[in-house]
Structure formats: C-alpha cells, structure tokens
Design a protein around this nucleic acid. Structure first.
Lengths: 161, 161
DNA sequence: GCATATATGTCAATAACACTGACATATATT
DNA sequence: AATATATGTCAGTGTTATTGACATATATGC
C-alpha cells in the first residue's frame, strides 16, 4: 500500500466512492455469471454470444427489422450480417419482407429458434427467478429502478454515454 | 405473430415470465451502456476491454496475485498474459515478488495506471452516482440485494453456473 | 421522373480477445 | 526427492468486432 486510491476525487467522499466501486464490481460479476452458462451451450452449436443476443431480441420482439436490431446491439451491420446469415441458413431465424416498407426484412424465430431460445435462457430465467424470489418485491422494484436509471436514453440529444 | 413465446413453461406464469425477460433485457442494456464510454477511451491507448478489467481490479485490490485475477476474470492465463504484459511494458501496472510466497508476482497500479483507472471509470462512477442518487437508498439496497443474489457462489460445490 | 436517402447485404482486410496444447522456470509442500 | 503450485511463453485457432468500399431494392422529396 504505497499509493492507495484515496487521493480524494473532486466531489465524492471516500465512503461513497467505495460504494460506487462495489456496485461496479458486482455488476461485472453478475453479468459474468449471467452469460457463463449460455456461452457454454452455444459452443455446441458453433455459435457465440452474438448469436444469443440476436436470438434473444428477435424472440422478444418478433417482426423486428434489421435496423432496430443494429440500434439495440450497437454493432455494425457487417458484424450482424455474418451472425444473422448463419442463424438463417441453419434454420433458427427467418426473414419476411415488410408489408408497409418492403425494403425491410422483418425477423422471426422459427420453431427451432424458439427451442434454442428457451434452452439458452433457461439458466438465466432461473437465476433471475431465484434472485427475485429471495430478494422480495421491494428489492426487485429497487433493482429495476436503479438499472433503468443507469441505461442511457436514446442518442437523440446525446443520451449520456 | 404465428408462434409467439407463450407456450407456457413448466412452472412460471406468463406475467412472471415477462418480468424476468424484461429484467434480462435491461441488464443487457445497462451493461452495454456501462462499458460504452470506457471502450472508446481505451482505443486511444490501443487497449481493449480486457485491459480495463485488469486495471479496475488491480486498482481495487492492490497487491493482488495473478492467480486471483485469473479466478475473478475467469479467463485463461494465456489470455491474461498478453494483456498484462502490455500493461506492464507500457508502465501502467507493476509487479513485485510476494513476500511470504516468492512465486507470486503481486500486481500494483503505477501512478500512470492510477490516472488511467480514474479516467476510465469516471463515466461509470458518474453513471452509478446519478442512478443511486435518483433512486434513493432503499432502491439502492434492493439493487445490491438482487445483484448479489444473482452472482454465483465460489465454484467449490458447483456454485450455480 | 429524377435525385437522394434509407434498408439491407456482401467482400476484403484487420484487430481484440478468447481458446487449446505444449513446455519452461522458480518456489513451495510433502 | 517427488510433486504441486504460481507464473510465463510459444504456436495455432476461432469468434466477434472493426473500417472501407460497393451493390441492390425501395421509399421519399421535388
């Protein structure tokens, strides 16, 4: 301990500083453990985390356009393209031309895709259910409140990121 | 909407199911926005997210052994090695031989490393501080409770992953 | 209709970050 | 002395991301 991190920042007391860092650390751990199991399942299919994200969001919002998915995932279309191509080729996702805007390729999970989604999210749902159940409704409400406040707004006026 | 995700799982009501998935989605968004700014700063240095993780944990736990860092990050030593070598070579992290166990190379941030850590975590601390402040102490307590319940225990008896 | 913008897709090259496997050294433990 | 642990390195590979360039189909503004 020669140069500990207690130089005192501009406006934060050391205790608050510690509380913030503890929160950051635990968010890291929670996310790390949240994705560990799906990551392992995905290797069976030759898929990666990116495939899971697509499966998750298309499952949650069927008929989603590619553009929306890009905005959510915040990756380039080239990155998404390869992943999406694989998922379509192997029968987990299908595309249908948009009805009002025929440039769009709206995305849907196939039966097979729905099955994979269930399998991937099983551990995650159980993990959430256990934590929610053990913590109780008030804690869950607090959890969601803080989580939502931490999310940047849409990048219209420069969200906060 | 031909095959919506309402097949009914084993033991969960559809509303609870929705609540869980909403939580999962928002955890994804929160984490995505949490790392966006540091990621951009890191490119200036030719570093990546892995460097940030090392900087963060070494800053938080000075004198940490390499083995501990590996357990926390849950990556292979080969992966850590490259990152750590860079950080040491460029003067952000230094190693000192352990006193009780001289096999260990204990890790410390240099002055330069501490500066970088501050810069990287600035947005993250502000983000947490804002969310904590706006949500209030009860919500923060609930947030931490749920987050902690979601983290797998140490992999002694098969933690939960 | 023409110009332009949007939605989507693809090719090529590159980088970050993870992996496995193999091997080496120093030190600790039994 | 044998074995285990802590650390490090070399080589090869795969996934996910990037940038840049270019192409097609469709929508929108004038």
């Amino acid at each position: 301990m020669d140069t500990p991190l207690t130089d005192q920042p501009d406006d934060t007391a050391p205790d608050a500083e510690e509380e913030l860092r503890a929160g950051m650390e635990h968010l890291f751990f929670a996310y790390r453990d949240f994705i560990a199991r799906p990551d392992r399942i995905l290797t069976e299919y030759g898929f990666g985390r990116a495939h899971h994200r697509v499966i998750f969001f298309v499952g949650r919002y069927p008929g989603m356009a590619v553009r929306q998915l890009l905005d959510i995932l915040q990756i380039t279309k080239q990155s998404l393209s390869r992943v999406l191509r694989q998922l379509i080729r192997e029968g987990y996702v299908e595309q249908r031309q948009g009805e009002t805007d025929r440039r769009q390729r709206r995305l849907y999970l196939t039966r097979q895709g729905i099955e994979l989604e269930r399998r991937l999210s099983e551990d995650q749902r159980r993990r959430f259910a256990r934590a929610y159940g053990a913590a109780g409704p008030d804690a869950v409400h607090g959890f969601r409140t803080v989580l939502d406040l931490m999310i940047s707004g849409p990048p219209k006026g420069g969200g906060g990121g």
